[in-house]
Amino acid sequence: MGVQENTIGILKELGNNAVKIDNAQADQFITQLRKAKHIFLQGAGRSGIAICGFANRLLHLGFSVSIVGEISSPRAKPGDLVIIGSGSGETTSLVSLAQKAVESDVDVVLVTMRPDSTIGRLASGVLVLPGTVKQENQQKDGAFSQPMGSAFEQLCFITYDAIVLELMAQLGETGNSMFARHANLE
Score class of each variant (00 low, 15 high):
82 V>F: 14
138 Q>E: 14
125 G>H: 01
138 Q>D: 15
118 T>R: 06
171 L>A: 06
68 V>S: 14
173 E>A: 09
126 V>C: 04
159 T>V: 03
66 S>I: 14
124 S>W: 01
127 L>G: 07
165 L>V: 02
78 P>T: 01
79 G>K: 06
177 S>G: 07
70 E>R: 12
143 A>P: 06
91 T>V: 00
82 V>K: 09
170 Q>N: 13
83 I>K: 09
125 G>A: 10
148 M>H: 02
151 A>D: 11
66 S>D: 15
98 A>T: 13
127 L>S: 04
91 T>S: 08
93 S>P: 09
91 T>P: 01
135 Q>R: 12
120 G>R: 07
127 L>D: 05
86 S>E: 11
107 D>H: 13
126 V>Q: 05
103 E>M: 05
87 G>V: 02
126 V>A: 02
140 K>W: 13
69 G>H: 01
86 S>N: 10
66 S>Y: 13
110 L>H: 11
167 L>F: 05
72 S>Q: 13
97 L>K: 10
94 L>H: 10
102 V>S: 10
67 I>F: 00
111 V>P: 11
84 I>L: 09
162 A>K: 05
170 Q>H: 12
108 V>Y: 10
121 R>F: 03
124 S>K: 15
147 P>Y: 02
139 Q>A: 15
159 T>I: 02
129 L>P: 00
78 P>V: 01
126 V>K: 05
110 L>F: 14
104 S>L: 11
94 L>I: 09
127 L>R: 04
81 L>G: 08
139 Q>S: 12
173 E>W: 04
129 L>K: 01
145 S>P: 02
89 G>I: 02
107 D>V: 11
168 M>F: 03
73 S>A: 15
91 T>Q: 01
108 V>M: 12
99 Q>P: 01
163 I>F: 10
156 C>M: 14
95 V>C: 15
172 G>H: 04
69 G>C: 03
168 M>G: 06
109 V>Q: 10
88 S>C: 12
164 V>E: 02
88 S>F: 11
162 A>E: 07
177 S>M: 08
103 E>N: 12
73 S>N: 04
140 K>S: 13
98 A>W: 10
163 I>D: 07
76 A>R: 12
79 G>L: 08
119 I>M: 11
67 I>C: 00
137 N>D: 11
77 K>Y: 12
85 G>Q: 09
172 G>F: 01
144 F>L: 05
155 L>Y: 04
65 V>I: 14
164 V>H: 03
93 S>T: 14
138 Q>A: 12
84 I>H: 09
97 L>Q: 11
71 I>Y: 13
94 L>F: 10
151 A>N: 08
79 G>R: 06
66 S>T: 14
154 Q>P: 00
89 G>T: 04
82 V>L: 15
